[in-house]
Simulated scan of single mutants.
Amino acid sequence: MSEIRLAAEPRNEFGKGAARRARRAGFVPGVVYGHGHAPVHLNLPSHALMMALKTPNALLVVPIEGKDEFVLPKAVQREAIKRSIEHVDLLLVKRGETVSVEIPVLTEGELAPGGNLVEHVLNNLPVEAEATHLPESVTVSIQGLEAGASILAGDIELPKGTKLGVEADTVVLQVIGAQASQADADAEAADEAASA
């Protein structure tokens, strides 16, 4: 995973008014915590932060007291309608440290013929990995799977140095038969015909 450097500035003003001024100036208020350090308040460049957060579990590099530090996004607050970032909590991490994160589960391949559907029981898979080598996602093959098939967490091949953060028998994906959805569609069509 690549490191994304952000030109953060120390934040000395607090409260709603100060946060609004920072946002108008193109910054997002944030706080860095972890490793027993007192929380450090920063203003982060809004556009650069938004672009960085498009990468799951982005490893950010921010200057703290004159020294570059690794941080991971822990909580992101967004504005309800525009979805712009209002505030971000960042977790201080060190090279070599193992951290717990969730990575997106992607699928590849085609199901067996028959109109079956894949249900993501877990959209994100909890894993543990070294802070500077976090996987961005994991890809699972669904090629040829039939209704009733499921993929367990233990079945998924993880990148080297990554461990599962859930039990191996946790269901991640399952294939649902098309019969139920077809029966619903048929019933709906019958209702429409009766009302016409």
Rank of each mutant, 00 (worst) to 15 (best):
P126T: 02
L90W: 10
E130D: 06
V118N: 00
D89S: 14
M1N: 13
T139H: 03
R24E: 12
R11S: 13
V99Q: 11
D89Q: 11
E108Y: 12
F70N: 07
H120D: 00
L91K: 13
H133P: 00
V172P: 07
G144M: 12
L90K: 08
I85R: 00
I151C: 09
R20L: 07
L158T: 05
A189E: 13
A178Q: 05
E192Y: 07
R78H: 08
R20C: 04
T107W: 08
V88E: 05
T107N: 04
V127E: 00
D186Q: 15
L72A: 09
M1P: 14
E157L: 05
Q143S: 14
R21M: 11
G17T: 04
D191N: 12
A187D: 05
Y33E: 06
P113L: 02
V140P: 03
E97M: 11
I85F: 01
K74T: 09
I156F: 02
L173G: 07
K16C: 09
L111D: 05
Q143Y: 11
V32R: 02
E108G: 05
V127S: 00
A48M: 03
A196W: 00
A149W: 01
L60S: 08
H37Q: 12
V32F: 02
D89V: 13
K54V: 04
A80W: 05
G34I: 11
S150H: 15
L6H: 11
P113M: 05
V175A: 10
L42A: 08
E79T: 07
L49R: 06
P135V: 12
A185P: 00
H120I: 00
T132Q: 02
F70E: 06
L173F: 08
P63I: 10
D186L: 15
E102L: 12
T170G: 05
A58Y: 02
I103V: 09
V118L: 04
H133C: 07
F70A: 10
G161E: 03
M1H: 13
E3F: 12
N123E: 06
D68T: 05
H87N: 09
V32L: 03
I156N: 03
V62I: 14
P45R: 10
V140H: 10
E69F: 01
Q182D: 11
M50T: 15
P45M: 09
A25P: 02
